[in-house]
Computed example of a mutant assay.
Amino acid sequence: AAEHPNILLEFKTKSDNIRYFLEHQPPANIVCSWSLNTPTIIRNEEHFTAPLEKRLAAARTMADRGINVAFHFHPMVHYQGWEEDYPRIAQQLMEQFDPQEVLFISFGSVTLIKPVLRQIRELGHPTHITQMPLVPDPHGKLTYPDDIKITMFRRMYQAFTPWHEQVFFYLCMEKADIWLATFGRVYESNEAFEADFGRRVMEKVGIPAAPEST
């Protein structure tokens, strides 16, 4: 990353092991991001991962060192009580972090390909994932119906209202009409999204974005 300052290198985790970053000073174009979920989902589905509070504490420690942080709510899981549990995490983030410390936040839903679903069954860990009402998407992946996704994404985006103008929000692997229903806007293409993401995030880091190819 230090040799290529015009790119952004992301380390994404569900762990609280940040020892390397505490022992070394990463360059400005490094971002450490955490996949977050509710305590209910972490306890029942995200086996062998750090609890929510430890993930947040690790991120807070990194931000205190001046290291860029970001967060992913992916996958968001639809279950009884989700509509209170997920916004509660949004409130925790807004209480524990300044929006200038957070480069971006993404939302995404449960999305599985059949071989992964088969592997989940074969591993035999306790799970309710295999019992969820998933439907095929246009690419053959299994995911939630659009109305469930839109309801969940809107709920979380609204929970972050105070940060809308200061943090870059996006959806992970979702089609244009779901973007429009969630954010009230949509990019014309993946290239347009990537260009805007790069420009806004690199500006926040303080590094000029790479020039667009012609």
Rank of each mutant, 00 (worst) to 15 (best):
H4A: 14
I7C: 09
I7T: 12
I7L: 13
S15F: 15
D16Q: 08
I18K: 00
R19H: 08
R19L: 12
R19A: 12
R19S: 13
Y20N: 15
H24D: 07
P26M: 12
P27H: 06
A28Y: 04
N29T: 11
N29I: 09
C32G: 01
C32I: 11
S33K: 04
S33M: 02
N37W: 00
N37Y: 04
E46S: 05
F48Y: 13
F48G: 08
P51I: 14
L56A: 08
A57V: 11
A59P: 01
R65K: 12
G66H: 12
V69P: 00
F71W: 07
F73Y: 05
H74A: 13
V77I: 12
H78Q: 13
G81W: 11
W82Q: 05
E84D: 15
P87N: 15
P87M: 03
R88G: 10
I89C: 10
A90F: 05
Q92R: 03
E95Y: 10
F97S: 09
P99A: 08
P99M: 11
E101Y: 11
V102E: 01
L103M: 12
L103H: 00
F104M: 01
I105S: 02
S106D: 14
F107E: 00
S109P: 01
V110C: 10
V110T: 02
T111M: 12
V116E: 13
I120P: 07
I120R: 04
G124R: 04
G124A: 11
G124E: 14
G124S: 09
T127R: 00
T127C: 14
T127H: 10
M132S: 00
P133C: 01
P133S: 03
V135E: 02
D137V: 05
P138S: 13
Y144E: 08
D147R: 10
M152F: 01
R154I: 05
R155P: 11
M156C: 07
Y157P: 04
F160I: 08
F160A: 01
F160C: 08
T161S: 10
W163S: 02
H164V: 03
V167R: 00
F168H: 01
L180R: 15
A181H: 02
F183M: 03
G184D: 09
V186W: 00
V186D: 00
Y187G: 01
Y187R: 03
S189H: 02
E191R: 14
A192G: 08
F193G: 09
E194W: 13
A195W: 04
R200C: 06
M202S: 06
M202T: 06
E203A: 10
K204I: 06
G206E: 13
P208A: 10
A209T: 04
A210K: 12
S213R: 12
T214V: 15
